Computed example of a mutant assay.
Amino acid sequence: MNLRQAQREAVRQALIREGMRLLARKGFAATTVDQIASAAGVAKGTFYNYFATKEDLALAALPPRLEALRRELEAAGAMPLRAALHHLLSRLVEWTQQVHPDVIWLWCIENLRRGANEPASRLLHRLVTDLCARGQARGELQDSRPPEELALDIEGIALARLAAWYHSGAPPGLLPHLLAAVDTYLAGAGLREEPAGRAGGSLPAAGPGPVPPPPPPDPNRQGPPPSSEGPEGTQAKGKESGGP
């Protein structure tokens, strides 16, 4: 990166930083482009060299967080699937606590409207897909569907919970409900404990305190495919999933 590129990136980051600070405090309606530009120390016209709208600025704030989270998970090594997903979702919930709820709703809408064309949605999908693929390869997840499909299911659960949270007035307690919903899905997809002999990685604690145990799997959800491991393997799976 040459000097000119570095200067442009510094201005862009200043606009994002100051814009998100103002949006977190005042929301979209009460925050103007003039205020964001002034806080970043640039002219109003300079803002439009980087972003078309305040909404575009807000959407640009999430991809760097997801990239940092991807590196964090990679550095942790072979974490069990459930623990890795819990950590990812905990970090996302931390983000919801640092921004105005309007920003979360904006991202939900853009995710539905643009899908993979929305940068943060594309990064999140790639990250969850990789985690599901690793879980299948390690024998943690019995569901044999493509990991991309499993990732779409999990992302859909997260988006639905975020939307419900927003329309309920953004009350506290989002994380336990979100994790419980994902755990229920994983149980239906045939999640098993980490196979013996594999040591999971570790990550710094994320999100609020302990999460209550997940509810029992939905009886209407189709269970995992039949086991091919014989009676002993089937019996072990029954014990792990709370069966007889």
Rank of each mutant, 00 (worst) to 15 (best):
Arg8Ser: 15
Arg8Val: 11
Glu9Met: 13
Glu9His: 02
Ala10Lys: 02
Ala10Tyr: 01
Ala10Ser: 05
Val11Thr: 00
Val11Tyr: 01
Val11His: 05
Val11Asn: 01
Arg12Cys: 03
Arg12Val: 06
Arg12Ile: 08
Gln13Met: 06
Gln13Phe: 02
Gln13Lys: 12
Gln13Gly: 11
Ala14His: 06
Leu15Glu: 05
Leu15Ser: 04
Leu15Lys: 07
Leu15Cys: 09
Ile16Thr: 11
Ile16Gly: 07
Glu18Lys: 14
Glu18Asn: 10
Gly19Ile: 12
Gly19Val: 12
Met20Asp: 02
Met20Tyr: 02
Met20Gly: 05
Arg21Phe: 10
Arg21Trp: 12
Leu22Tyr: 01
Leu22Ser: 04
Leu23Met: 06
Leu23Trp: 01
Ala24His: 10
Ala24Trp: 09
Ala24Asn: 06
Arg25Lys: 15
Arg25Trp: 02
Gly27Asp: 07
Gly27Phe: 02
Gly27Gln: 10
Phe28Ser: 04
Phe28Glu: 00
Phe28Tyr: 00
Ala30Phe: 12
Ala30Lys: 04
Ala30Ser: 07
Ala30Trp: 05
Ala30Cys: 08
Thr31Phe: 12
Thr31Trp: 04
Thr31Gly: 04
Thr32Ala: 03
Val33Phe: 03
Asp34Trp: 15
Gln35Pro: 01
Ile36Val: 12
Ala37Leu: 06
Ala37Ser: 04
Ala37Ile: 07
Ser38Met: 14
Ser38Glu: 10
Ala39Tyr: 10
Ala39Met: 07
Ala39Ile: 10
Ala39Asn: 13
Ala40Arg: 02
Ala40Asn: 02
Ala40Asp: 00
Gly41Leu: 06
Gly41Thr: 10
Gly41Asn: 12
Val42Tyr: 15
Val42Ser: 14
Val42Glu: 13
Ala43Trp: 10
Lys44Ala: 05
Lys44Ile: 02
Lys44His: 05
Gly45Asp: 14
Gly45Arg: 12
Gly45Phe: 09
Gly45Val: 13
Gly45His: 08
Thr46Asp: 02
Thr46Gln: 07
Thr46His: 00
Phe47Gly: 09
Phe47Tyr: 14
Phe47Ala: 09
Tyr48Arg: 09
Asn49Cys: 15
Asn49Pro: 13
Ala52His: 13
Thr53His: 15
Thr53Ser: 13
Thr53Tyr: 11
Lys54Tyr: 06
Lys54Ser: 08
Lys54Ala: 06
Lys54Trp: 05
Glu55Tyr: 11
Glu55Asp: 15
Glu55Trp: 10
